[in-house]
């Protein structure tokens, strides 16, 4: 059931755009957050709100891989099997998880906890092989670590991404994708080791881009607006304070 609250939020999404149809992708993410997949009712509601036909909405929903036509488990586990990750061990990890969970590609465990899928390149090739849980990064994976990861998820243990936050449910993640923040942006690191490889080496050897050091007054940091930007600037209490 799409609740009245969700219908209100779906309308709220349309207000972000000059033309309401642009809201369709985030709206479908919100439908998945509520329903666990793109349900027939969700398609009808989106169509009605955007003055489209259900067929037009379904045509969009079926085009994109992230929209699911069957309910997804609490944790969507995506194993990258594009070439680089596959060669580095992604194929072995995917095979291990299929056997360990007793499911095939795009199938969900009987307890409804884990949906396994092989995914395409997720832009973390310097951390290959990569596994995604609800679209959070698990880097430099091995078959053993992947097995332990899904065991922890099924047991309800708290799991933290390597470069990300504590893992929420797939439905909660879909809500963030729809544009409703969950307050977890400050969890996790700035970067992983591979992201910093060149930077570390440059620091060691004294290399730089030759950009001059900033001089003069610093612009407002968001927590202490100064005169220069006081036209309506408000404090946000400063980011980076954690939860």
């Amino acid at each position: 059931m799409i609740s009245d609250k969700t219908k209100g939020e779906l309308r709220e999404i349309t207000a972000r755009y000059p033309e309401s149809r642009s809201a369709l992708l985030p709206m479908l993410h919100l439908v998945q957050s509520e329903e666990g997949y793109v349900s027939p009712e969700g398609i009808e509601v989106c169509a009605e709100l955007l003055d489209l036909t259900a067929a037009e909405v379904a045509a969009v929903a079926t085009f994109y891989t992230m929209y699911k036509r069957r309910p997804v488990g609490d944790y969507h586990v995506g194993v990258c099997t594009n070439t680089l990750c596959a060669v580095m061990g992604g194929d072995a990890i995917f095979g291990t998880l299929k056997e360990h969970l007793g499911v095939g590609n795009d199938e969900t465990t009987e307890d409804g906890k884990v949906t396994l899928e092989h995914v395409e390149c997720n832009a973390a090739c310097d951390y290959a092989p990569v596994v995604m849980v609800n679209w959070e990064f698990f880097d430099n994976m091995t078959p053993e670590r992947a097995r332990k990861l899904v065991d922890d998820l099924r047991a309800g243990n708290e799991v933290e991404a390597d470069r990300g936050a504590r893992i929420c449910t797939w439905r909660q993640a879909e809500r963030v994708l729809a544009g409703f923040p969950d307050g977890r942006a400050d969890e996790g690191p700035s970067a992983g080791e591979a992201s910093l490889a060149g930077l570390r080496l440059a620091a060691e050897r004294g290399w730089s881009s030759g950009a001059p050091k900033p001089t003069g007054d610093a612009p407002p940091r968001g927590d202490a607006p100064n005169g220069a930007a006081s036209n309506g600037a408000t404090s946000n209490g400063g980011g980076g304070k954690g939860q």
Partner: peptide
């Protein structure tokens, strides 16, 4: 120099994603 961190220069800073850290 062989490496010229510009876009990556602040990636190792604590809380680099926040506005205060970026302004600093």
């Amino acid at each position: 120099d062989p490496l010229t961190p510009a876009l990556t220069a602040n990636w190792g800073q604590r809380g680099s994603w926040t506005l205060p850290a970026y302004v600093d």
